[in-house]
Design a protein around this nucleic acid. Structure first.
Lengths: 217, 217
DNA sequence: CTAGAATATGAACACTTGTTCATATATTTC
DNA sequence: GAAATATATGAACAAGTGTTCATATTCTAG
């Protein structure tokens, strides 16, 4: 009855379905879910509202689908799944990579929209909150703390509470991503925030690393 | 025509006006502005919807009033305005005070609701965004960086970019406040986050302070 | 206590919203 | 190219929305 119908490359159907999702995401993330009407979505893609109901049962299902996509989004997969042991040994480079990933994601249109949707719906949609908490927050912080723990064993960084450190590393990145999102909304310059991504990694690393010799500069 | 009408202690009018604002804030912060109906607000205070229009021109004006109150809210005044020079000399104690203030505010019902309203409306209401940016973010970070700069001059902390440090101190506190807000929404335990407020101050201070003698513990 | 003002009610309005459905058009399959 | 299927249209509906207004009730001065 539903499922993937396109046997060939990409049937017309699944193309418009994708277009609906893309359009809806843009509007939801800008005006909010409740304030976006089915007519808004249809209008933005040059189609009548009733057409959408051939692809989605109702408005809610559009949101549900977008939320479902969140789980597999880049926003929740900060780590390339290479060997943890190896990754940890790279020390600062690992952290720098995550910092860069955060920064790049802040400027990726698709991710930006998903982030804004997440932020707005989190406070009133329990499922979104769950996805944020489990996949976006917990999973990443936990993985991070594992890496940090390994770095401690390798004596690359000072011994300390790994989970606390993971939070301290994660929080500013999240915050700066939010700041970028807000600034872009008013078309303001983001350059000052951009530099904060890198400065954060630098500052954080200097705070935790074990100095090999002297290195006061 | 409007203005404050109550000449005596507290006229019935201004009491219900306050009650409307209180009720609306609770609902707006829970369900979002758009999803909250005038009937919801009236119903929650056991009154018919038309009654509200004796106190506010329309639904929008209720939101506008709440937003206006934001500016004078505790959420945006992190600092007791004592002498900056003196404050800076207190070093870690100053930072600890701010950390504690953040933590306490996270558990204050009124502040929590305002925070949630702020977070949800920020992305679609330019005025809210402006208030967040100017009063909540910029003002506090700027003041913080001033204090940090003074601490550098007093040689309490290492020389570094004060604005960057201010952001690094501010961001996690903001993030943890958000986490508390989310956890409380599902009535989950907040204890692990609570401890992060203090650990953050500790970690941050250890990262920037100048060690008087040796002090590896 | 009474006149006048402030506030609440009930009912209605104009409008928007999500959704349905019969019908028309396009697309795919054979 | 015709049959079958998928998709789009136009029109309509029922429910919900913000708002108004005449009227009733409550409160407050004098």
């Amino acid at each position: 009855m539903d499922g993937d119908k396109g046997t060939s490359a990409l049937s017309k159907g699944s193309k418009t379905k994708a277009k609906i999702l893309k359009t809806a995401l843009k509007l939801f993330s800008t005006k909010g879910y409740k304030a976006t009407t089915v007519r808004d979505i249809a209008g933005a893609m040059g189609v009548k509202q009733s057409a959408l109901y051939n692809h989605f049962k109702n408005k809610d299902e559009i949101l549900e689908t977008l939320i479902g996509d969140l789980t597999s989004s880049a926003i929740v997969h900060l780590f390339d799944d290479r060997d943890p042991q190896e990754a940890a040994k790279s020390g600062k480079a690992l952290l720098a990579g995550i910092g860069t990933k955060f920064k790049l994601l802040s400027f990726d249109g698709q991710n930006e929209a998903l982030f804004k949707l997440l932020m707005q719906e989190m406070f009133r949609n329990e499922r979104v909150r769950e996805i944020y908490n489990e996949h976006f927050y917990q999973e990443n912080v936990k993985k991070l703390s594992t890496y940090l723990f390994m770095m401690m064993q390798e004596e690359l960084i000072r011994s300390s509470d790994p989970l606390m450190l993971a939070n301290e590393f994660f929080a500013p990145l999240f915050f700066y991503q939010m700041q970028v999102s807000l600034l872009k909304q008013d078309k303001k310059s983001t350059s000052s925030v951009v530099s904060l991504f890198e400065k954060h990694v630098e500052f954080f690393w200097e705070s935790i690393r074990i100095e090999k010799k002297e290195s006061f500069f």
